[in-house]
Every structure is written in structure tokens, then in C-alpha cells.
Design a binder for these strands. Sequence first.
DNA 1: GAAAATATTGTAAGCGTTTGCACACCCTTG
DNA 2: CAAGGGTGTGCAAACGCTTACAATATTTTC
Lengths: 338, 338
Amino acid sequence: MIKKQNATIYDVANKVGVSLATVSRVVNGNTNVRASTKEKVLAAIDELGYQPNAVARGLASKKTTTIGVVMPDVTNLYYSELTRGIDDVANMYHYDVLVTNTDDDPVREVMAINNLATKQVDGIIFMGNELDQRVLKAIESVGVPVVLAGSVDPAGQLPSVNIDYVAAMHQITSQLLDNGHEHVAVVLGDFEHAINQEYRFAGYKRALEEHGHEVNRDYLFTKAHNYQTALDVAPDVMKSGATGIVVYDDEVAIGILNYLQDHGAKIPADFEIVTSNDTNYSIVSRPQLSSIGQPKYDIGAVAMRMLTKLMDNIALTELAVTLPHTFIERQTTRKRQD
Amino acid sequence: MIKKQNATIYDVANKVGVSLATVSRVVNGNTNVRASTKEKVLAAIDELGYQPNAVARGLASKKTTTIGVVMPDVTNLYYSELTRGIDDVANMYHYDVLVTNTDDDPVREVMAINNLATKQVDGIIFMGNELDQRVLKAIESVGVPVVLAGSVDPAGQLPSVNIDYVAAMHQITSQLLDNGHEHVAVVLGDFEHAINQEYRFAGYKRALEEHGHEVNRDYLFTKAHNYQTALDVAPDVMKSGATGIVVYDDEVAIGILNYLQDHGAKIPADFEIVTSNDTNYSIVSRPQLSSIGQPKYDIGAVAMRMLTKLMDNIALTELAVTLPHTFIERQTTRKRQD
DNA sequence: GAAAATATTGTAAGCGTTTGCACACCCTTG
DNA sequence: CAAGGGTGTGCAAACGCTTACAATATTTTC
């Protein structure tokens, strides 16, 4: 592996017989260069195969054209779809993406943010189930713009892109209630997390109240984070007496769905289930999971677009963007006639 | 967002009353520093909240402690699990990871590699279904080590980590044949890709030949890349007369499984299916998909470990690493008694 | 106790760019 | 034709760090 010495801006300047500055100008699209010299420079660049060294550039200009993405887990379909949206528009704006997995651990989130600061990223997209105080502090002191994607800041101080979780949860809970279910269970992750308690559960609760039902914690199930932990919770939800189930995550929903069916339940005859993320899981399951429709790709894409504005010092017209969600009726709910 | 002026190495040198070099030494763990001065420097660093600027460091040292990962799609469970392995050991060695999605497009792969070169990454992990000539050339000329993860180089010139696809395919095909199937179908992606034709199909073919069967292209199905395209192919495999099916990818397998069942087939009574990646899809499906067991996380982790060696100029003991695979018997195959 | 070794620290030259400023040059104007 | 006004270009100073090499301290050695 011979590391062939890359041509530098100096080499092309020499070859053409101009100064570094001129070469730099044509490379950066500065217009104050005579057309003829520009051509000569371009030719030399082509001939030498010159590619500007992004590190040197970053040092001199204090812009790295790199952004950081901190996310819980690449392996999680919900987040990876957001990431795809982020990545695509990042590329569109010629940013590279440094990703870090945190497993939702605040300590690692803080480390990731600080590390990204060290690497002089121009901005950061943050995804996570909860905005820990330590993380918040790290974000505030990092010195570059940060936008949240699919992640809430209850204080509303940070730029963010989300759907209206309260409304979405309210909607699907209401539908189940309208379908006549006496008891609707809700399955969430950590209840300490604002997104679960203050948003999702709040929407669920409001629906219950509007329908004149009491909120009974016996129908609240938490700590379901993935397929395995969903399987742990599933027996309890099956025994709970609830016949309608709203779930905050697809991997969890498919776990519960599978458990119920494996234990003789007919879906949607015995239980109606609605999930929330509309990932591939909700399509490959049998029956297919009815779900809140989230514009996941767009959440990421819009968040990244906002970040580009922030990085260009353009004011945001809206700090907390709420993208529209839908309801996708598939096979774990009974047909409704509105 | 006030960008607070970060302390530089110069600031801490001043504060302590030593030279830059000394500070640099303690930051970099150089041992030739008197314990007492080291302490003073450390104290100053702490007090000023000094964090070395990685960009400047990269320029001076020509090491960025950043690697590039080029992959088809973060959203693909197989690749994202490899990436998780990569990321974890990268972190372990204090590398950051720059990821690029290519959608398996050689043009974008080449662009990604060149772009990473520009960013002065210390090394690259490449994942893709096919090693296009253009990509190969880009890899050869990029000037930093590249290792393939879950991706084959038929020429065997590049460091790589894989399972033995030929053996794996041979094994599952044989099992199906042993179970008495007269016709075993094989479902692949692009047949032009070496990994499909020269590896997977070769293993399939050898199994057939060993069992005295003719290889009949009527049982070869290609161009199935994801759930949707799997659904497109599924009717043909159902009609083909094959009763055993080996599939190269889980998302494709679950598509075929679902189609067959949706059209009245009993699995595994009417059809036995074996898939290849052992992702979450093979567990959430009903019945659960029997699969080749691939150490996906490890493939990524080992590839990254190899890359660290290469970056440290340590010779590899083995260029093309083959990790062991297993067979995971689940519910789309009938019980076997070996 | 002085020379020789060794340990510690400082000097300064890069690393490959960007960019503010100054300098030429070439047209216009009046 | 001198002054004014662009254009086009070059100079040189950063950017924040690493790292030979040189210089100075501190120990050892006999």
C-alpha cells in the first residue's frame, strides 16, 4: 500500500505559475478570477489529480462540512430510517456524517457530543428517547447548532422535528375506544421518559377521559424496549383483561402480537392492536399491524435541512417542527366506518 | 448560540509557564515529562476545559482517528448489524466513524471512497453486494487500508471478513435435499454479482450435483432485493413446483414466506424455507424462519479490528478471514434427526 | 566534584488550506 | 491624460497542533 503523495494546492499553483491564493479561489468558486487563468488552473488540477485536503481546509476555515449524528442504535429500524433521511439531505448539502451509537445511555450521549465537538463538526443531529439534564448541558455548551430528530425537548428550547405524539396517541386510543373496547392497554418504554409519560401517555389518558373512562394503571405496561422485552411484558397484557392495545414501538408491537397469537388469541377478533412507527415490521407481520403513519424519512430530512440553515446562520421560522402523521389501517384492527 | 472561544494548547502552556511541546506531550501521553509538571499541566487543562482540536491534530499528525464506512443502506438490518460491530470496536480503539449510504450503486461507492480520502480518514470498511471494477480501482488508489466486511473479493486481493457462503449454501441446500425434496428453489439478488453466482449459487449447485440432481434454471430466482421485490418473485416460486426454498436474505425470505402463506400454503408442510442472515426478521416471522446463523456483529467487529492493525502497520496473519456459520433450525423446516 | 549520561523542556518548522490586505493592471471619465 | 474604479492576483499571516532537533537540567559514575 504505497501512499502516493497527494498533490497539494502548492503543486498546482507552481504548475500554472500562479499563487496559492488564486488556486484556492478557483477551487472555492470565487468569481474574482479571470476566465483564462481559471481554465489553466482547472486543467492543472485535473492533470495532477489534485483534491483539496479537507482537514487543512477545516483548520483554516473552521468549517469541516461534517455533521455528527448521535443515535441510540443503528440497528433500530425507526432510528435508522430517520438516519437515512438525515444522510440523504446531508449529502445533498455536501456534508459528511459522523454517527455514534449511544444505546440511549446519557453518559455515552454526553461523551459523543463532546467528542464531536473535538472533531469540530459543524452541527449535530441528536436522537434519543430522553433528554437527560447532562445531555442538555452538553448540547448547550457544545458551540454548534444541534437539532433533535424524533426526540422531544419538553422545555421546547431546542430545534426539533417530531410528529404530535399526544395527538397520535389520542387518536388511536380513541379509535379503539370507539370500537367498543372497555379496556385499552398502552405499552410504552421507560415511563420516566418525558416522551412516554408527558406525550404518549398523556394522549392516551386524554382519550380515555374524553370517553368517560377511568385511567387505570393496570392497563399501563412499560419497560418494553425491543422484541425480547416485549415478550416479557406480553403475558401480563394478555391477562390484563384489555382487548385493545396501543403500542409505542413496532418491534415491541410485533412481539406482543406474536405472543398473543402464539397463545391462541385471534387478532383482531380477540385483541385489536395499533402500533406507532410504521416500520417494515408492521408490514411483514401477520396479520399486518395497523399503525400510526410517521414520516420517518422526512423527520430526518427536515431536521437535517434545519441544521443546514442553522449552520448558515439563517434564522428558523419554526423552532419545533411538527410533521403530520396519519393512521394506517391494516389488519390488527377491525374495519371502521367513519 | 455564542461560540465560546475554546482554549488552545497555547493557553494552557501559558498558564502553566511551559512550552507548547510540553503540553502536547502530556496530552499525548508521552512519558518524557516530569511528574510534577505533568500534574500542573493536567490541572491547567482541567481548569481551562481544554480539549485538543482534532482537526489541527489531524493536519499536523496526518492521522484523523476517523474511519469511513461505506455501506449500501443503514436501513438494511443485515448491514446495520455489521455496522454495529464496526462501530463498537471502532470506539474501543477511539476511532470515529463516517458512514455513507450507497444503495449499492458503484458510482456512489466510488464517490464515497474518494470523498473519504479527501477527509483523510485513516482507513475504510467497505460493504457492498459487488466489487465493481471502478470501485476496486478507487480502493486501490485511495492510499489508506480498506477491508471488506460481509462482502467478497473474488480475486482475493483485499482483506475481508465473511462466512463461507459456498459452504453455507451447500449445507442448507443439502439438508433440504436430504429431507426428500425433489425440487429445491434458490432465491438470490442480482445474478451478475459474484457473491450470488460464484458463491451462493455455486454452493447450491454443488449440493444438487452431489445429490444427483440436475441444475435447472427454472428453480433459480433472482432480482429479489427486499420485501417488495420478494413479493414480486414469490408467485413464480410458488408455481415452480419447488417444495424447498433457500433464500439469500431475510427480508426477501419473509416476503416469500408471507406470500406463500397468504396464498394458502402450509409452512413447513408444503414448503420448507431456509434463509441466510438470521436477522430479527427471521425471529419475528410466523413461523420463525430457519436460517444460516451468521455472526454478523462479529464480522463487523473483526473487520474493524483488522483495519486497526492495518492502520498501525501490523501485518495481517490472514487476509481473507472466514468466520464460522451455523444452522439455526426454527419453524420453516421440518425437524431433522441427524 | 567534574565529566558523561540521561531526563526534561524548549524552539521552530511544518501540516495544507483560507483570507484580509495590498498591489498591479486595465478601463472609464471628464 | 491624470484621476478614479473596478478586476485580478499575490503576500503572508493565521488555523492549532505534532515533532525533529537543540538546549538545558538533573543524575550517575568513578
